[in-house]
Simulated assay, not measured.
Amino acid sequence: MATGKTYEESAENNDHLIRSSDSQHPANLIPELCRKFWTLGWVTGTGGGTSIRDNDLVYLAPSGVQKELMKSEDIYVLALSQQTDPKKRIYLRSPPSLKPSQCTPLFIAAFTKRNAGCCIHTHSQWAVLITLLLEQLPSNATLFEINNIEQIKGFGRGYQKQGNLGYHDTLRIPVIENTPHEEDLTESLEEAMDKYPDTYAVLVRRHGIYVWGETVHKAKTQCESLDYLFQLAIEMKKLGLSWLSDIA
Rank of each mutant, 00 (worst) to 15 (best):
G48K: 00
L78D: 09
D54C: 04
Q102T: 13
C103F: 01
S94C: 11
Q82M: 07
E73L: 03
D85G: 11
Q102C: 12
G49S: 02
P105Q: 12
D74V: 11
Q82V: 06
L60T: 01
L98V: 04
S101A: 05
L57C: 03
L98C: 05
L69T: 15
L60Q: 06
K71D: 08
S94E: 06
L80K: 06
V77L: 09
V65F: 08
R53N: 01
P62L: 05
A61W: 10
P100S: 03
C103N: 03
S94L: 02
Q82E: 14
T84L: 13
K88L: 08
R89E: 07
P62C: 03
P95W: 11
A79R: 15
S101F: 03
M70H: 05
L69N: 13
K67A: 06
P105T: 11
L98E: 07
S94F: 04
D56S: 09
L92H: 11
P96D: 15
S97A: 13
S63M: 09
Q82Y: 07
S63N: 04
D74S: 04
C103P: 01
K71A: 05
V77P: 04
S97F: 13
L92K: 15
A79I: 10
E73R: 11
Q66C: 03
S81C: 07
A61T: 14
K99R: 15
Y59E: 01
N55A: 14
L92E: 13
K71G: 01
P100H: 06
P96R: 15
S63R: 10
N55W: 12
G49K: 04
G64W: 13
E68S: 09
I75T: 04
P62N: 02
K99L: 08
L69W: 14
S97Y: 14
P100V: 07
T104S: 10
G49Q: 01
L57E: 07
I75R: 04
P95S: 14
T50L: 05
L80N: 09
Y59D: 02
P95H: 13
S72D: 12
L92Y: 09
Q83G: 03
V58Y: 09
L92F: 07
T84C: 12
V77E: 03
K67E: 11
K67P: 02
P62H: 07
T50W: 04
D74I: 08
A79E: 15
Y76W: 06
L60R: 08
G64Y: 12
S72N: 09
S72A: 14
T84N: 14
